[in-house]
C-alpha cells in the first residue's frame, strides 16, 4: 500500500497536539489521579483487622440496596489527637526553616553562576547537579558519619581544642535541617539560575547610571525581577520537605516525628490504613494551597509579559 504512510502522517498532524498532551494526561491519571482516589476512599472507611485492613465503602444491605458508609471518624481523630497536629506543625516549621536556609544559600550561588563567565557557567552548574550521581540514601548516611559523636566534625573540633566534649548533632532537629538543606539545595539553585541568567545586564547599568549603588540596584531591580524564580525554588523545596520521610528517620530526633514519618508509622506499624490515608489527604490539601497560589501568580506574570 502506497497511501498508508501519508495517511498516517496526516492523522498525526491533525491529532498531534491531542496526542502530545494526551500522553502525560494518561500517565498522570493512571499513576496519580486513580491512586489518589483510592487513598481518598480508604480515608473514609473503618479500620479492620483483616485483609485488606479496612471496611468496604459500599455495602449491600438488602437485595436491591447499596449503602455508602462514609466513616468520618479518621478525620475527627486527626483533630483530637495532638500527636498529628504537633508533628504537622513541626514538619511545616522544619520545612519553612530549611526552605529559608536554601534560599539564603542558593540565591548567592545562583547569582554567582549566572554572572560567571559563560565558559565557567557549565562547570559550576555541573557541580550543583553532581551530587545526583550518587544515591540519595548514601549521601544522607554519609551525614551520619560526619555529624555523629565520634564523627569527622566532632573529631576535628576536638583536635583543634575548640570543644572539650563531642557535640550531640545526630538525631537532633539541627541534623534534619542540615540533611534537608543539603539535599534540596539544587532544587533551589536551578530555577533561580534559570531566572537570573535571563536578566538583562544593561538594566543594572541603567540603575547605576541613575544613582543606585550596587546593593540598592540589586534590591530594586534584580530581586523583584527574580520573583518567579524564588517562587519556583521555594515551592520545589518546601513541598517535598514537608512530607520528607528518609532524612528525619535517619538524622532526626526519635521523640519528635515529622508528618511523613507519622503516615508511614500508621501504615506499616499500626496497620491503620484509614487514618494514614486521612492524614495523607489533609497533607495534600494543605500543600495544594501554595501551588494554587503559584499558578495564580504565574498567570498574572504571563498576562503582563
Amino acid at each position: 500500500m502506497t497511501g498508508g504512510r501519508p495517511r498516517l502522517w496526516e492523522l498525526l498532524e491533525r491529532r498531534g497536539r491531542a496526542l502530545v498532551s494526551g500522553i502525560p494526561l494518561g500517565w498522570l491519571s493512571l499513576f496519580f489521579l486513580i491512586p489518589f482516589l483510592i487513598v481518598l476512599k480508604i480515608s473514609f472507611s473503618e479500620a479492620r483487622l483483616a485483609m485488606p485492613p479496612y471496611a468496604p465503602l459500599l455495602v449491600r444491605t438488602g437485595a436491591h440496596t447499596l449503602a455508602i458508609h462514609m466513616h468520618l471518624e479518621n478525620y475527627r481523630l486527626l483533630a483530637s489527637d495532638p500527636l498529628y497536629l504537633d508533628s504537622l506543625l513541626y514538619s511545616l516549621r522544619v520545612a519553612a526553616g530549611s526552605t529559608l536556609c536554601c534560599l539564603l544559600l542558593g540565591y548567592p550561588m545562583a547569582l554567582a553562576i549566572a554572572r560567571a563567565h559563560p565558559a565557567r557557567r557549565h562547570l559550576l552548574l555541573m557541580a550543583i547537579i553532581l551530587p545526583f550521581w550518587t544515591s540519595f540514601l548514601l549521601r544522607v548516611y554519609a551525614w551520619i558519619g560526619l555529624l555523629q559523636d565520634n564523627g569527622v566534625i566532632n573529631h576535628l573540633l576536638l583536635s583543634l581544642h575548640l570543644i572539650h566534649q563531642p557535640l550531640v548533632m545526630v538525631n537532633t532537629t539541627f541534623a534534619v535541617y542540615v540533611g534537608i538543606v543539603y539535599s534540596y539545595l539544587p532544587f533551589m539553585v536551578l530555577p533561580l539560575y534559570a531566572n537570573l541568567e535571563k536578566h538583562d545586564a544593561t538594566l543594572l547599568e541603567a540603575a547605576a547610571d541613575l544613582g543606585a549603588r550596587p546593593w540598592r540596584a540589586f534590591c530594586r531591580i534584580t530581586l523583584p525581577l527574580s520573583g518567579p524564580g524564588i517562587m519556583a525554588g521555594v515551592l520545589l523545596v518546601f513541598i517535598p520537605a514537608v512530607g520528607e520521610f528518609v532524612i528525619p528517620s535517619l538524622l532526626g530526633p526519635a521523640n519528635q516525628l515529622m508528618i511523613g514519618r507519622v503516615v508511614s508509622n500508621e501504615f506499616f506499624e499500626n496497620r491503620d490504613w484509614p487514618t494514614a490515608s486521612a492524614l495523607a489527604i489533609v497533607l495534600l490539601l494543605l500543600l495544594l494551597a501554595p501551588i494554587v497560589l503559584l499558578q495564580r501568580y504565574r498567570r498574572r506574570e504571563l498576562a503582563s509579559a
Partner: peptide, 20 residues
C-alpha cells in the same frame, strides 16, 4: 568616580527600561 556618583546620565540604545 563610579557611575552611580557621576553627574551625568545615559540613554541606552535598548532604552533599558525597568520592565516591572
Amino acid at each position: 568616580v563610579p557611575p552611580y556618583r557621576r553627574p551625568l546620565n545615559m540613554m541606552f540604545q535598548s532604552y533599558a527600561l525597568f520592565p516591572h
